[in-house]
Simulated assay, not measured.
Amino acid sequence: MCLPPANVAPPRDPDEEAAALPPSKIAECNALIQVINHGVRDLDKGRAPGEHEGGPSELRRMAESLDEAAAHAAQLNLTRPELQRFAGEYHALAKEIASATRALATAADTNDTERLSAGQIAIERAMKREPALVGRIKRFCRAP
Rank of each mutant, 00 (worst) to 15 (best):
L76Y: 07
T101R: 12
A69Y: 04
A105E: 04
G54N: 08
E64L: 15
Q75G: 06
D42R: 15
L66G: 06
R102I: 00
M62C: 10
E96P: 04
V40Q: 14
Q84S: 05
I97W: 03
Q84V: 06
P81D: 05
A69Q: 13
L78N: 06
A94W: 09
D44T: 10
R60E: 07
R61F: 12
R80L: 12
A74R: 13
L104K: 06
R61K: 14
T79R: 14
Q75I: 01
M62N: 15
P49K: 08
G46S: 14
N77R: 14
L93M: 08
G39H: 15
A70F: 00
H72V: 04
K45H: 07
L83W: 00
G55V: 02
N77L: 11
K95M: 05
I97D: 05
E68N: 13
A98F: 01
R85E: 12
P56L: 11
L83T: 01
A87V: 05
L59H: 05
E96K: 15
A87H: 02
A73E: 08
E58T: 02
L43E: 05
A87P: 05
P56E: 13
E51N: 08
E53H: 13
E51W: 10
L66K: 09
R60D: 08
L83C: 00
R61H: 10
G54L: 01
A63Y: 03
A71G: 10
L93R: 02
D44F: 09
A63V: 04
L43R: 09
L43I: 06
A98T: 03
K45Q: 14
E58V: 09
A73P: 02
A94Y: 08
T79P: 02
A87R: 04
P56A: 15
R80M: 07
L104Q: 08
E82F: 06
A71P: 02
A69T: 10
L59R: 15
A92E: 12
R41C: 12
E89P: 00
H52R: 13
P49Y: 09
E82P: 00
E58C: 03
L104R: 11
H52V: 08
L66R: 14
A105T: 04
D42F: 14
A94V: 00
L93V: 01
D42Y: 15
R102F: 01
A71W: 10
T101A: 11
E82W: 00
E64Y: 07
A73C: 06
E53V: 11
S65H: 15
R102P: 01
K95Y: 02
A48H: 11
P56T: 09
K45S: 13
L78V: 03
L83V: 00
S57Y: 06
P81S: 10
L76I: 02
H52E: 09
F86L: 05
L59D: 00
G54A: 03
P49W: 08
Y90A: 10
E89G: 09
A94F: 09
L93S: 04
K95D: 03
E96I: 01
A105C: 06
E58L: 08
